[in-house]
């Protein structure tokens, strides 16, 4: 079958070489990162496989869960929920001024705006559990420190998400109000709030779902909730108690996810 004129091997090489060079460059960088990382953590497939049985035997010791222990878990479970609720609630309130300051269409002052955004981004880099560990050391053991940690985290996360929604609102309703002579407060109340309220509520609930998960492990750094008996059980090698706690935690997280979904339907 005729194939038109044959393309020179030179041309073939040119077309296929560009690709190879790019790939080679990326490969060298990636290889460097991996060698550096693997050496840093002492990565060894052999060791991972060798120790795997002891990991599984540890899991095996957790079976069956100590069902009787579940009765003692009600109080810490309730505390876990309360920590998450209060942390999310205070966060959702404290977030309001921060959101307004970190939205460039509300805060016209560049310095205040960048300060608020910067503060938000700095606080966001630190995980909740580090806040909890720091507060436990600074204020003391207990659920109060856990709640404050969650409050800090919720404030910045909700503010980040909501301020982005706020910056994207449409100006039609605002201009309409301006046209009929509304003042700034009226404009916020009737043109801005209705536009971002659904987003704000939705983000708050989303953060609440994260917070429930976090508050189940706060106890591992001494900040209250169901993690406290978990920490104790693990320290005392009571693995069947630990597995009971983990099981209960699972159920709690799933139940809250479900409830939060329902709540979303009602509120949003």
């Amino acid at each position: 079958m005729p194939q038109g004129k044959k393309v020179k091997a030179q041309k073939v090489a040119r077309v296929f070489w560009v690709d190879r060079l790019k790939k080679l460059g990326a490969l060298v960088i990636i290889a460097f990162i991996y060698i550096w990382s693997a050496r840093g953590v002492g990565f060894s497939l052999l060791e991972i496989i060798r120790e795997l049985p002891s990991f599984f035997s540890l899991l095996g010791e957790m079976i069956p869960p100590n069902w009787a222990y579940s009765r003692r878990l009600i109080a810490p479970l309730v505390e876990t929920i309360q920590i998450a609720i209060l942390g999310s609630f205070f966060g959702a309130i404290l977030t309001i001024p921060l959101t307004l300051l970190a939205a460039n269409n509300v805060t016209r002052n560049k310095y205040i705006y960048f300060f608020a955004k910067g503060l938000m981004n700095i606080f966001r880099t630190i995980p909740e559990l580090l806040y909890a560990a720091i507060l436990v050391a600074g204020i003391g053991l207990g659920a109060f420190s856990g709640m404050l940690a969650i409050t800090i985290f919720s404030t910045v996360v909700i503010a980040k998400l909501t301020s982005e929604s706020l910056e994207a609102i449409s100006y039609g309703p605002l201009e309409a109000l301006q046209a009929v002579g509304g003042n700034k407060l009226q404009m916020i109340r009737y043109a801005v709030v209705p536009q971002i309220l659904p987003a704000y509520t939705s983000y708050s609930l989303y953060v609440f779902e994260i917070n429930i998960r976090v508050s189940t492990v706060l106890g591992l750094v001494g900040a209250g909730g169901i993690g406290v008996p978990l920490q104790t059980s693990l320290n005392l090698f009571r693995y069947q108690n630990a597995s009971m706690i983990i099981l209960v935690t699972f159920i709690l997280v799933m139940a809250i996810d479900y409830a939060s979904t329902k709540l979303r339907e009602v509120l949003v």
Partner: peptide, 14 residues
């Protein structure tokens, strides 16, 4: 193989 690459490129030229 080189032959197949050539076929592909000449198909494009067609």
């Amino acid at each position: 193989p080189l032959k197949d690459k050539e076929i592909a490129l000449s198909a494009l030229e067609r």
